[in-house]
Simulated scan of single mutants.
Amino acid sequence: MTDPRLSGADGLGCPAVPAAERFRRAIRVDPGLAARRLDHVLAVSIPEISRSRLQAWIASGQVRVDGSPRRSRDKVWAGEVIELEARIEPIGDCRPESIALDVVFEDEQILVVNKPAGLVVHPAAGHPDGTLQNALLHHAPNLASVPRAGIVHRLDRDTTGLLVVAKTLHAHCSLVAQLQARRVHREYCALTIGEVVAGGRIEAPIGRHPTHRTRMAVVRDGRFAATRYRVLERFRGHTLLAVELETGRTHQIRVHLTSIQFPLVGDRVYGGRPRPPKQASPALVLALQTFPRQALHAIRLGLEHPTLGTTMTWEVPMAADFADLLGLLRHESVTCS
């Protein structure tokens, strides 16, 4: 948990001056992260900075725990204060690539994009290039001096919709602070298997699955996570939900909805195997069986502009494949009513 009393001059863990060169953060180790490696605690606490970059900062002495340097593998304990003050160097392991971007809004501080399905947000194992981060560095080369090219939150590879990018370090600090304070409004459309009776709120901790390490799960020692949902439309055997995130854990919507027995259509990882309703037409059966991704679309985004201080909101149309599937479901629900 970031301790504002120990942060930069603005109380948000952001540098007062010069904003374009330094990155400062002070973190008091939460009891839930006690006895873990220093680099792991930093990666969890500052997810917008890559773990490799954090490890490099630790190795170069730019990170101290209770005033003393530590190694990446050293354990930290509840109540200790991790202080980070580092120079932001241009990204060297991610090259600009000419990849088309659907830009919804852009000014000197922020960039809002409508991400298509299949686009990975930043390089990772198995995806060294061809990512949104590569595209952003080509679109705006100055993003090389902003952590993770300005990416402050993520969408899964096959989730479509709105994502905001910080174009300056000041904007980066502002957006991270808003996300931590839960002041960024993120609304999704999610198509679930099963007929949801009413809306609700799911509060359940999320962490790595105990046996399937590439998956997330609701686990006792996971990180706090909360999701709100309401019913938008019901079909035979399926429900369209509006889902709002209070927190932003990996795969949060997919894991939470699966935990209440309503997995997303197309989500093979978390149990969304096709379950066509009885007497469904061949066209609908085929559409449900071949839908290639989780049916999840980030439709609305709202935040406070980093310098103007005004509230800004954006909305994008449903992704075409999602819209087509909804059209089939609506047609058959009317036909069978």
Rank of each mutant, 00 (worst) to 15 (best):
Asp267Met: 00
Ala35Thr: 11
Arg73Gln: 12
Leu136Ser: 00
Arg24Gly: 14
Val113Arg: 05
Ala323Pro: 05
Thr247Met: 06
Arg230Glu: 14
Val104Thr: 00
Gln180Leu: 11
Thr211Ala: 13
Thr239Trp: 01
Val219Glu: 15
Val113Ser: 07
Asp267Lys: 00
Pro277Phe: 00
Thr310Ser: 09
Pro4His: 05
Gly126Pro: 09
Glu244Ala: 06
Ile82Cys: 08
Ala140Gln: 14
Ser145Lys: 10
Glu106Ile: 01
His127Thr: 04
Thr310Cys: 09
Asn134Trp: 06
Gly61Ile: 07
Ala225Gln: 02
Ala283Glu: 15
Gly271Lys: 04
His209Tyr: 10
Leu175Met: 13
His185Asp: 14
Thr258Cys: 10
Ala226Asn: 08
Pro47Thr: 05
Met312Arg: 15
Pro210Asp: 11
Leu308Asn: 11
Val218Asp: 08
Asp30Pro: 14
Arg213Ile: 06
Pro31Cys: 06
Ser98Lys: 11
Phe235Gly: 00
Ala86Arg: 05
Asp74Trp: 13
Val44Ile: 12
Phe291Thr: 03
Cys173Ala: 14
Asn114Asp: 11
His331Glu: 09
Gly199His: 07
Ala125Phe: 14
Thr313Leu: 09
Tyr188Ser: 05
Lys278Thr: 13
Gln55Asn: 13
Ile299Arg: 10
Arg28Trp: 12
Asp10Thr: 08
Gln109Val: 12
Val255Leu: 00
Ser72Glu: 15
Ala135Leu: 11
Thr311Pro: 14
Arg236Ser: 05
Glu187Thr: 14
Leu325Arg: 03
Ala226Phe: 05
His172Glu: 01
Gly130Arg: 01
Asp221Cys: 12
Leu163Gln: 13
Gly161Trp: 05
Leu191Val: 04
Ile49Asn: 01
Arg220Thr: 13
Ala166Gly: 06
Ile27Asp: 10
Gly92Leu: 11
Arg186Leu: 13
Cys173Tyr: 08
Leu179Lys: 06
